[in-house]
Nucleic acid binder design. Structure first.
Lengths: 355, 355
DNA sequence: GTATTTTATGCAAACGTTTGCAATTTTCCG
DNA sequence: CGGAAAATTGCAAACGTTTGCATAAAATAC
């Protein structure tokens, strides 16, 4: 294999005794080129096994047709689903998506911003690290009029297009739900407050308590990265001394599941002795016994909104003042067995899948 | 914002009254450049907010520093984990990974191969569609000496580097396990035979049966895309008429879970009346009640092997005859409650998490 | 049959790097 | 201090496209 095998439009031009520009235009279906020539060119391109060089084209018109996507991790249900949707949607429009993971490390997120900029992505969508409070590493994109969309984990005070869930309402709804089912002492396991969405959920939690005249107790809220390990530790703390809570609002399903398992070990009955609600509606929530009440955040819908926002921003001329609107994706409480009211437990559990 | 804001090495050169080449070399730490100049250049680069243009560099030396990754879907546990590992590993070495999803559509896979080639990726890793039997759309990569690694769902007769699980052993081990636990009539729900890994698992299943003198019955094997919906339909068929099987070997965990739920509806006790084993060790398998025995395929290890193979192949000069070796990642049966022997059920179930 | 419009093609510059080779400067040594 | 070797720096071409402008060819009009 002698290398030198890469065919270019120059080769096509020579072969056909045409100019390079004609070939380029023919391949791009430029209207000024006659149908006859176009056919000839395309046929020859095929024959020679020509493949366009995206880097050359990209360099020429400073468009990479690639979009950056930064998420904490794709192994988590919620961001994975969103990423899938974004990618498929944008692919339909001829864009590649560079899916990158920050692994919830601010340092990695900063590095990613830098290298993604170097690849001259046409737009960027990001769901930030839990610990990102300063978003200035994304300034480059703004400064250069590169569409920038934040979703799910979004900045608080940073001018940019935002697509997020209704976390205040989520927190409120869950808490009120638990109260209505009879809980008087509800623990909330939250993510760190460096992430605004948890701030909102906590606010919802507090307001629901207030509305129902239940005193808010600082000691009943825990702030932590929502991993299984942390959930286990927190369980130890919660159940170290009585009184035990009769309700738990966990800010994700991994945490809810871990608590459920812990309760099982303590021979606490769920939902009779303690009710549990998670968040995000992870597929595991409806598989475990008892099934866990959770909050659906409609990740597919969010993905579509993000994709639409990206396409929209790329459409409008760079001169257009970037739109900094905020879109809110609805949430829906999915009631399951883990939070059923005591007397209706049997019914509720039996209810699912009534074909 | 007047555009024209993008700084280039030319700007740095002018600012510093240096030549473009010196600037380029300085930024790349070329040994011929004096330390003093390097510092000066880097400082100015910073000051001007210079960011290298990866496309220009890529065009010049026909290296994109980007690697393609094609998987059926990233929302599935197994490929998601592998993708994560590959991406993180390659990122450490300065490569981007374009994670793309074929959505199990051959058509999309072919299109992806084409467009990924156009972006001049430096290497490609792929886990194919269930239905890919003809792999010739990847010929372009081979013909142009672009490293090509297949993993998990790999081709049967196609010259390329391959990293795959030990599916024959997996099928054999699961089947023998069920037999040893007392099953006499084992149904196997397999993926379509267009995908070689299922061929291997079926072979393992058959051989285990033969070894234990259990006749193989064609009607006890089902071939289907392993979705929840298909699993439900197959359940209908299996339990439409007696005798019912006393063991099920499902080729993935989604299927195993669906069967388990179906058995619950039929008031069949698992594992007492029927034992179930899944495949891939999805996190859901150890959350459901009873927990489901499954086969760990060590996705992280596989991801590392794939990443290593990619890096290795990119290292060696294009002239080196491409190595077409096959690496086999081990598997391990993770025994759980769903396949425990009748008499030991209690013990087994109680055993997990004995702190 | 010439002038004018319309349609189709070609020229050449530009995009931002990298790099072989040549040129220049510095260092070193007797 | 002269000259050679070593250390720096610069020139210019190349990577494969796209595109404004100019030109050529064909079609239309008079």
């Amino acid at each position: 294999m002698s290398k030198r095998t890469e065919k270019t439009i120059v080769d096509i031009a020579e072969e056909l005794k045409l100019s390079i520009s004609t070939v380029s235009r023919a391949l791009n279906n430029h209207p000024n080129i006659s149908v006859k020539t176009k056919e000839k060119v395309k046929k020859m391109a095929n024959k020679l096994g020509y493949r366009p060089n995206a880097m050359a084209a990209g360099l020429r018109n400073s468009k990479s047709r690639t979009i950056g996507l930064v998420v904490p991790r794709i192994s988590m249900f919620f961001p994975a689903t969103i990423s899938t949707v974004i990618q498929n949607k944008l692919y339909e429009h001829g864009y590649h998506v560079l899916i990158c993971q920050s692994n919830d490390s601010l340092e990695q997120e900063i590095a990613l911003a830098e290298t993604l900029y170097s690849t001259r992505i046409d737009a960027l969508a990001v769901s930030s690290t839990l610990y990102t409070t300063d978003f200035s590493h994304f300034d480059i994109f703004k400064d250069n009029n590169i569409p920038l969309v934040f979703f799910d984990r979004v900045p608080k005070d940073y001018q940019a297009k935002v697509v997020r869930g209704d976390d205040y309402l989520g927190g409120y709804t869950v808490t009120e739900h638990l109260i209505e089912k009879g809980c008087k002492d509800i623990v909330h396991i939250s993510g760190p407050l460096t992430c605004s969405l948890y701030v909102d959920r906590v606010a919802g939690y507090k307001n629901a308590l207030r509305k129902h005249k239940i005193p808010f107790q600082k000691s009943r809220v825990f702030y932590q990265e929502l991993t299984k390990e942390n959930a286990q530790q927190t369980c130890e703390k919660i159940f170290a001394k009585k009184p035990w809570p009769d309700g738990v609002f966990a800010a994700n399903d991994t945490t809810a599941i871990t608590i459920l398992e812990h309760c099982r070990k303590l021979n606490l009955r769920v939902p009779e002795d303690i009710k549990i609600v998670g968040y995000s509606n992870d597929p595991r929530a409806e598989i475990i016994t008892p099934t866990i009440t959770s909050v659906d955040q409609f990740p597919a819908l969010m993905g579509e909104r993000v994709a639409a926002a990206l396409l929209d921003l790329m459409q409008q001329p760079a001169s257009t003042p970037q739109r900094y609107s905020e879109e809110i994706v609805p949430i829906e409480l999915i009631e399951r067995a883990s939070s059923a009211a005591a007397e209706t437990t049997a019914k509720k559990v039996g209810k699912k899948k009534v074909k």
